[in-house]
Structures are given as structure tokens and as C-alpha cells.
């Protein structure tokens, strides 16, 4: 069943077309990877799906409802969660409070009703020892974990991950991939932007390639990686 579908979505910043006539669909329970060179418009595409930016043209449908004009907060409430490429914690709040905000607002519940769920997510993401630490004091890995934990706290049906493995050591990356795989197994649909391709390809079932805001290829990871056009773009980058 279709969960998310973008139809002819475009976005421009002035004369620059950052998203150019993008169409794709995501089925329920599917994990889709998005790759492409820097500046291809990957993060912008996320901002359009989550409502941080408004589309210039085209429609976005989620769970059978047209959400093209919905606010970011409303989209979160309907089940779209995200992590940011550069971690954006609520710096002056504690790790636990970061999760409580997301869980209580994102699911429209009281604070007391979400405590147990937040604790569970803190344990899953190995942040429980840092629960009362100020988010601004965390290390990069901890910030990445917090991004994931906060997004999970809203109990999303669709989780958008933006370069969550970037900048981590191999060991850290492996542990994070395990966590993401577990989330996917629980039935959460995932769209994941990532440059660390081995991490990405160990989770996703399908790849989509963006360049200059356009979809230039999509399909099974193996086939996509072998296509001449993708090889051309990634020339010089180890795949």
C-alpha cells in the first residue's frame, strides 16, 4: 500500500531549481535510500516532505491525504518524523526533556503519559546514562543518537533520516545501523539520505538517485549502483 507519494514536486530558491519535477512513491513498510552528490537537493526534498519548506509546484500525498499545504507540526502529528543532517537538539534542555517534547507534542499526549516510552527509547538508543545531561554538552555520536531518539519519540509511521551516519567511526556507524534496522523491522517506513553507502545498502530495499534536483535513477540498489549514469556522478568516490 502506498504511504507517501510525490507528484511533480518542484522547488526553487530564486533562479536556482533545487527540486525539479520529482515524483516517486514509497510503500508502507518500505525502506528507501536517497543518494546524490552534494547540492543535489536531497535535504531540500526532506524539508518539502516534512513541511519546513513549501513546494513551488506539485503535490505530496501521505497516507491517502493531500498534505501539500499542511504545517510542519501537523505533518509530524500525522506520523512523519525526521532527523536533521546537522543535529539540531534543543540545546538548553536535557536529553530526556528533548524526548518528552517530541513525544508529548508529536503524539498529543500529557507529559506523564509519555515518560515510560521516552525511557524505553533512551535505553534502546543507549542514551539512558545521559538522560539528565544538557543536550548542548553531547558528543557528535550522542547528538546523532539523540536526533534518532527524538524522531522515534513521535512514534512515526514514516521516518526520514538525513545523513545520520556521516562523521561517525566504523564501529559507531555499525551500532547505529543496527538500531535503524531494528526500527525498520518494527514496521516503520524509512527514507534515508546517506553518503556512507555500505551502511545505507545494508538497510534499504530501493535506491533513488538525485542530481541537480532531478531523479536520474531509481530501483534495486544493485542495479542502481551499476548504472553508467550513477557511476559517472560518483566517479572518484569509492563505491
Amino acid at each position: 500500500m502506498k504511504l507517501l507519494s510525490l507528484k511533480n514536486v518542484s522547488k526553487n530558491f530564486g533562479a536556482l531549481k533545487v527540486t525539479d519535477d520529482v515524483s516517486f512513491t514509497l510503500n508502507e513498510g518500505e525502506a528507501l535510500g536517497i543518494i546524490g552528490p552534494n547540492g543535489a537537493g536531497k535535504s531540500t526534498l526532506f524539508n518539502l516532505i516534512t513541511g519546513s519548506l513549501n513546494v513551488a509546484a506539485g503535490t505530496i500525498e501521505y497516507d491517502g491525504v493531500d498534505i501539500t499545504r499542511s504545517s510542519a507540526a501537523a505533518r509530524c502529528l500525522s506520523g512523519i518524523g525526521r532527523s536533521f543532517q546537522i543535529p539540531q537538539p534543543f540545546e538548553k534542555l536535557t536529553v530526556f526533556e528533548n524526548l518528552v517534547v517530541a513525544a508529548s507534542f508529536g503524539r498529543n499526549l500529557n507529559e506523564a503519559e509519555v515518560t515510560d516510552d521516552c525511557v524505553e527509547i533512551l535505553e534502546k538508543t543507549e542514551l539512558i546514562g545521559k538522560a539528565n545531561a544538557i543536550a548542548g554538552s553531547l558528543s557528535l555520536l550522542e547528538r546523532k543518537r539523540l536526533e534518532l531518539a527524538r524522531a522515534m519519540s513521535t512514534q512515526p509511521k514514516l521516518l526520514l533520516l538525513d545523513e545520520i551516519a556521516g562523521g561517525l567511526t566504523d564501529g559507531e556507524c555499525l551500532a547505529l545501523v543496527d538500531t535503524i534496522r531494528a526500527i525498520h523491522k518494527d514496521g516503520v517506513s524509512i527514507i534515508w539520505i546517506e553518503h556512507v553507502l555500505h551502511a545505507l545498502n545494508s538497510v534499504v530495499e530501493r535506491l533513488l538517485v538525485l542530481d541537480f534536483g532531478r531523479v536520474i535513477e531509481q530501483g534495486e540498489p544493485q542495479n542502481v549502483m551499476n548504472s553508467p549514469e550513477v557511476k559517472k556522478i560518483y566517479l572518484g568516490i569509492d563505491i
Partner: peptide, 8 residues
């Protein structure tokens, strides 16, 4: 931006 993304 992050606040809006978690439903605030």
C-alpha cells in the same frame, strides 16, 4: 525548525 518537526 526542530520544534516544528516534532509537532510543536
Amino acid at each position: 525548525e526542530a520544534a516544528e518537526s516534532v509537532g510543536v
